[in-house]
Simulated scan of single mutants.
Amino acid sequence: MSDGDSKILEATRRRLTGKQAETVEKLTTSAMTVLAREGFAGMTIRMVAAGAGVGTATAYTYFSSKEHLVAEIFWRRLRTSPSPVSDDADPVVRVLAELRNIALLVADEPEFSGAVTSALLGRDPDVQHLRLRIGVEIRNRLTGALAPNADAEIVESLELLYAGALVRAGMGYESYSEIAERIERSAKLILR
Rank of each mutant, 00 (worst) to 15 (best):
I102K: 06
T80R: 15
G135Y: 11
T80L: 08
A163I: 11
L158S: 10
G135N: 12
L121P: 00
N101Y: 05
V85C: 00
S81E: 10
E137T: 13
V92A: 15
Y60N: 04
G122T: 02
R139T: 15
N149K: 07
D90S: 01
R131F: 06
R94Y: 04
L146P: 02
F74I: 04
R77H: 12
Y62T: 10
L161S: 00
L161A: 06
R77D: 11
E109F: 10
E111G: 01
D108Y: 03
A163F: 12
P84D: 09
R139D: 12
E111K: 12
D151W: 09
R123L: 13
H68V: 01
V127Y: 02
S83F: 06
D88W: 00
P84H: 08
P148S: 09
A163S: 14
D126P: 05
F63K: 05
E153P: 04
V116T: 14
R100C: 04
T143Y: 02
A115D: 02
L142I: 14
Q128N: 01
S81W: 05
R77A: 06
T117D: 15
A165C: 06
A165I: 12
I154M: 13
Y60S: 00
E72H: 07
D151A: 15
A119W: 08
Y62C: 04
E156N: 13
D151Y: 01
A147S: 14
Y62S: 03
Y162G: 01
F74V: 01
A97T: 09
L130A: 13
